[in-house]
Structure formats: structure tokens, C-alpha cells
Write a protein that binds this DNA or RNA. Structure first.
Lengths: 147, 147
DNA sequence: TCGGCTATGAGAACCATTCCCATTCTCGCC
DNA sequence: GGCGAGAATGGGAATGGTTCTCATAGCCGA
């Protein structure tokens, strides 16, 4: 986890009247080291000694402070990743069978085309401040091999 | 609701060993008439006399038969829409404040560009049979006006 | 060091969703 | 047209991820 990230997270938490405690630092580090959104079970498994209620509470605080984002999925468990302005704009590759996700980036010119086109569509529908979310859903190599 | 849609739905249900009952017909009609994914509360409000347990059970059956699709959202309730091969490929405009959704279509050439580019990305990551999901997230006119 | 405020942990509470089961309906068959 | 088997329905109980509560512990400024 970079020093800059650490500093920005602390600033955002302080701005929301919160402290940057050890557990919250663990959560941020865990998410920063991952290359994909992490589910609650993964987080509890990877963060030794983190209590379930603390994990939920702290993820909610971090989300409120704009540090993490909850990613909607088809799965039963929620997934979290660092806010996009902290780790950069990206999209997700999702396995329709096992649910695993991986961060991916698409070419800048495609992003630009998307933004331009979608902005026009959104405006004509009366929507403001529009961002796009793009997900690639398919079968991961493991699931394709297994079945 | 068109006759063709009705016929296709019935065929899919029969293929799954299910009947195309009145309640299921109501659900399909309701979703066909909507221009956006419908949440469970909306469905229960719009389908007079439909019992909650029946709505959940029948939506699950319809999903299993490939007639409807559950749409993941940030909200507390699930949303459902007709399967894409029944109503055509489309995307969603989502209000980040109130959660309402609206179906939108993007230009065919952008779709083509997306498919081409994303397919390459997915293949290089070992993913097969990849489709894309695109969502435009912003503030709807009502929410922008209110606050 | 003290006082007030925040964080933590354990469990209870919540609530959308799923499950269960007794009753009712459908449809093929005679 | 009536029977019987299997499917659908409805009401409520059970499930389980998530949130809430509250007593205790920790942190930080004065």
C-alpha cells in the first residue's frame, strides 16, 4: 500500500469525523493488494482476527467516507473495492459460473468513445453526472475446463 | 404482450417441465410492458392479488427456464427483466440516488466496437463466451431537481 | 490524568428471500 | 365427465447476510 493512498484515506476518514484505526488500515491494505473486488468471506479469511461485525461496520464507514465502494453482484455476498478515484477507472471481468472477478482496463480511445456517446444518451434522458460501468461476463478458464 | 413472446415463453417453460399458469403469464406481461427492470415491491404492487411467496417462486422458475433475468443492483430489493434474447440487447440508465432504472440502447457501431475490443481482452484473460453489461449511472431528472 | 468521544466485539434483531407443506388446480387418460 | 398424478398456490416458518445495540475498551485533546 502506497504512502499516498494511506494519506488520502486518512484525510477522507478525518473529514468524515472518523479515525484511521488498525482494522481500517488492514481493510484498505487488503483491498489495495487485491486485483479484484473482495467478498466478505474472503475479507474475513484474509484479515486474521477481524470480527465479522467490525468488518461490516468498518466497510460501511469506509464507504461513507468515499474510500471503498460496494460492488453489486449476482452472488449472495457483497463485494468491496477501493473507490475508483483512488485506484483508477477500470472494469470487471466476471465469471458467470463461479463469480470470481478480475479488474481489467480497456483502451483509452474506447473509454473516450464510450464517455462521449453515453453522455449524449444520458443527457437526452435527463440524467446528469453520468458515469459508466462496464462488465465482461463469461466463463473463466477454470470453469470452462471443469464443465 | 405479443403472441410470439407468449409462445416462446410457453415453450421454454414446457421445456423445463413447468406450466405457463395465469400468475406466470401476469409476471411476463408485467415485465414485457415495463421499459425497465422491475423490483419485487413494484411487482407486488402492480400484480393485484399476487402473493409474495408465489411471486418469488415464479420468478425463480421463470429465471430457471431462461425467461427472466435477475438484475444485480445496489438496492435492497431484487429486480427482474425479461431475458435479453426475448427483448433484445440493451443497457440500463440507473439513478444513483433513487435507484430507478430505464432501458436504453446504444448505437450499433458502438456495440460492435465494444464486442470486438472486449472479446480480445477477455480471451487474453482466458475467459470464454463473454458478453458485456453496460450501465450508465447518474442522477435522474427528478433527483437532480430535488437536491 | 481526566473526560468525552470513537471503536470494538458479541450477540440480538432485521428483513429480503427461500423453504415447507397442506390445499387446490391442471391436464392427460380412461 | 370423472380420476389420479403431478404441479401450483398460499400462508407462514426458517434461513442467512447484514445491520443494530450496548457494554467495554481505546484514543486523543485539554
Amino acid at each position: 500500500m502506497s504512502v499516498e493512498l494511506d494519506t488520502m484515506v486518512e484525510a477522507r476518514l478525518r473529514g468524515a469525523g472518523q479515525r484511521y484505526t488498525g482494522q481500517r488500515r488492514d481493510l484498505v491494505r487488503l483491498l489495495a493488494d487485491a486485483d479484484s473486488p473482495r467478498s466478505i468471506p474472503q475479507i474475513l479469511a484474509e484479515a486474521r482476527d477481524m470480527k465479522q461485525s467490525s468488518a461490516y461496520r468498518n466497510l460501511a464507514e469506509l464507504e461513507h467516507a468515499g474510500v471503498v465502494r460496494r460492488v453489486p453482484t449476482d452472488e449472495e455476498y457483497g463485494r468491496y473495492e477501493l473507490a475508483e478515484d483512488l485506484i483508477g477507472h477500470h472494469h470487471h471481468l466476471v465469471c458467470s459460473n463461479c463469480g470470481t472477478m478480475r479488474d481489467v482496463e480497456v483502451p483509452a480511445d474506447l473509454e473516450a468513445t464510450l464517455d462521449r456517446t453515453l453522455d449524449r444518451i444520458a443527457k437526452s434522458a435527463g440524467f446528469a453526472r453520468v458515469q459508466h460501468r462496464l462488465e465482461l461476463v463469461g466463463l473463466c478458464a477454470d470453469c470452462a475446463a471443469t464443465g
